[in-house]
Amino acid sequence: MSDELKRGLEGVVVAESGLSHVDGQVGKLVYRGYDIEDLALKAEYEEVLYLLWHGELPTRAELDAFTDELVAEREVDDDLLETVATLAEADERPMAALRTATSMLSAYEPEADADAEDRDAALRKGRRITAKIPTILAAFERARQGEDPVDPDPSLSHAGNFLYMLTGTEPDAVSEETFDMALTIHADHGLNASTFTGMVIGSTMADIYSGVIGGIGALSGPLHGGANQDVMEVLYEIDESEKDPVEWVIDVRESGRRIPGFGHRVYKVKDPRAKLLQAKLRDLSESSGDTKWLDYTTAIEEYLTEEGLVEKGIAPNVDFYSGSVYDHLGIPLDMFTPIFAMSRAGGWIAHVFEYQEDNRLIRPRARYTGATDAEFVPIDER
């Protein structure tokens, strides 16, 4: 067995998957063979969930039944909502609140005692988690604002219902369509850190709640899920400086700062998801009449492209545009990563189920670098 060290598991293939494929050289992302652009523009998030969980796109009848099952699971127990309100009053971080509330969901799971290998029961659990996370997040944000939670609206889509529960107002068509696309393009992305965390947990045959909670924990780290918030903070900083965006970028680059939203561990060209969200940002800007963030991001991308960053493989990633889109939708800055988790939960669940079909406990090794001949000294002689 080779002892070659691969820090961060760089280049290590640990599993086979038919769920999603990222071709970073040409900027292509597919879910089960379908190009992300087709899914983002032509399918609803519920269709994408069905595709990831069941292996094929649903018929109209299958989608209707699947959607009805999701809608039926949206409500959250009052005791859990009280806990969410308590977390908000305690000024808990949104991702930490989501982690705690998702863990508490298992206390109300009607099939908690189902065998770990009962795939149908596990899928129903995954469906409950996916349906309830939006309710939890919306209730948490409203509690922070001193407002009561809004009950789910069964007539609205997964995306539309979240925006409704968050604001208390039914979203317009552009907003709902945009947020639905955002959920779709964030649903899965190969073996990223949070997906791999969920798979490791799933390989022990722990329940799906544990896998999703692990994914939330991994996503909460700033090196994984927080870049869109960083981009938005930069845009705020530019706005407050009253400088031209390009002038601001030149100044901060000369000071040694990096521009968030550029560069990706896999993509060496512009992220296809960034292209989709850039177009939606344009739609939202035209609909609202506020083009500020579109103007800023476009100017920055054009300048950095002219400076040769894209040629060096440092191109805009999905986070460069997602923050601006969420801001237009009225989503608070520190809720951006929880929104990411709300979407990616579907992918985590799919990967856990897929891996468990041919399960092997994930148990890597570490190269030991410690002492080998330390002499033990009794405590009274130390």
Score class of each variant (00 low, 15 high):
residue 230 D to H: 12
residue 291 T to Q: 13
residue 248 W to C: 06
residue 246 V to E: 09
residue 274 A to F: 03
residue 263 G to E: 03
residue 246 V to D: 04
residue 223 L to Q: 03
residue 284 L to D: 01
residue 238 I to T: 01
residue 225 G to T: 03
residue 226 G to D: 06
residue 278 Q to A: 14
residue 280 K to I: 01
residue 255 S to A: 15
residue 286 E to C: 04
residue 221 G to I: 01
residue 223 L to I: 03
residue 240 E to D: 12
residue 283 D to T: 06
residue 229 Q to G: 12
residue 292 K to D: 12
residue 288 S to P: 01
residue 271 D to V: 09
residue 229 Q to E: 15
residue 231 V to P: 00
residue 229 Q to T: 12
residue 241 S to T: 09
residue 267 Y to K: 03
residue 262 F to A: 06
residue 225 G to N: 02
residue 254 E to F: 06
residue 220 S to L: 09
residue 227 A to Y: 01
residue 272 P to G: 10
residue 270 K to P: 01
residue 277 L to N: 05
residue 283 D to N: 13
residue 285 S to V: 02
residue 252 V to S: 04
residue 285 S to H: 09
residue 223 L to K: 09
residue 284 L to M: 11
residue 265 R to W: 04
residue 268 K to W: 04
residue 278 Q to C: 08
residue 264 H to I: 02
residue 265 R to Q: 10
residue 220 S to W: 10
residue 288 S to C: 06
residue 290 D to T: 04
residue 257 R to G: 02
residue 262 F to D: 00
residue 243 K to V: 02
residue 235 L to D: 00
residue 248 W to L: 09
residue 234 V to W: 03
residue 224 H to Q: 10
residue 228 N to Q: 09
residue 271 D to Y: 07
residue 259 I to P: 00
residue 273 R to S: 08
residue 264 H to P: 00
residue 240 E to V: 06
residue 241 S to G: 11
